[in-house]
């Protein structure tokens, strides 16, 4: 019976989509360019896409360009702009209203900072490990030391390089 409920759920989702789509309408712009720019830092809250309100082009709908949710958000941005708020204040206001799910990228404070620090930390750790390994492996056991420490002549070096090129991957 689960298949039935699944089928129903999918049918309901399609019906919802169709409902939103059926008149094949979108409103004309109705928001400022500045709102759109700030909107690129706010996630569209339609729950149907992972796009920002500013760049929302909600896949699969009958529209391109911002969906109704995104447009409402952009108009809200314009209201904040009219009050003279800065970009950061507006983003903060949206986070207060919708929760941290409105971020397009994690905030560089609180737990969000972890997301930003993680790649930096494991890059540093990774490089440290590789450099450590290279140095460790570079220490050759005495028996493996080159038999003739004399510097190879330039011609020899070239011949060796050519041989390497021609025989190795």
């Amino acid at each position: 019976m689960r298949a039935m409920t699944n089928a129903k759920r999918i049918a309901a989702a399609i019906a919802l989509l169709a409902l939103a789509a059926s008149p094949l309408v979108i409103a004309q712009v109705g928001y400022s360019q500045r709102a759109k720019e700030i909107g690129t830092h706010l996630k569209c809250q339609c729950r149907g896409c992972d796009m920002s309100a500013g760049l929302c082009a909600h896949p699969g709908g009958s529209f391109s360009g911002p969906c109704d949710t995104a447009k409402a958000m952009l108009r809200e941005v314009d209201q904040h702009l009219a009050k003279g708020e800065t970009e950061q204040q507006i983003i903060d206001a949206f986070v207060a209203e919708y929760g941290p799910g409105v971020y397009m990228e994690p905030p560089k404070k609180g737990f969000g900072l972890v997301a930003w620090l993680m790649p930096v930390v494991y890059s540093i750790v990774g490089f440290a490990i590789v450099i450590f390994i290279v140095r460790k492996w570079a220490v050759r056991p005495p028996s493996a030391a080159p038999a003739s420490p004399a510097a190879p002549s330039d011609a020899m070096e070239r011949a060796r390089a050519q041989a390497d090129r021609e025989t190795e991957d």
């Binding site: 992972d50 920002s52 941290p100 971020y103 990228e105 737990f111 997301a115 790649p119």
Partner: peptide
């Protein structure tokens, strides 16, 4: 590093929900 960065970014919303009870979304700009 690329693999871990993509993996941790993808799973970060799940982690943030575990640790803070708030789901912090991670989108394309990140």
């Amino acid at each position: 590093i690329a693999c871990i960065a993509v993996l941790s970014g993808t799973l970060f919303p799940v982690f943030s929900e575990w640790f803070t009870n708030n789901r912090i979304s991670v989108g394309a700009p990140f």
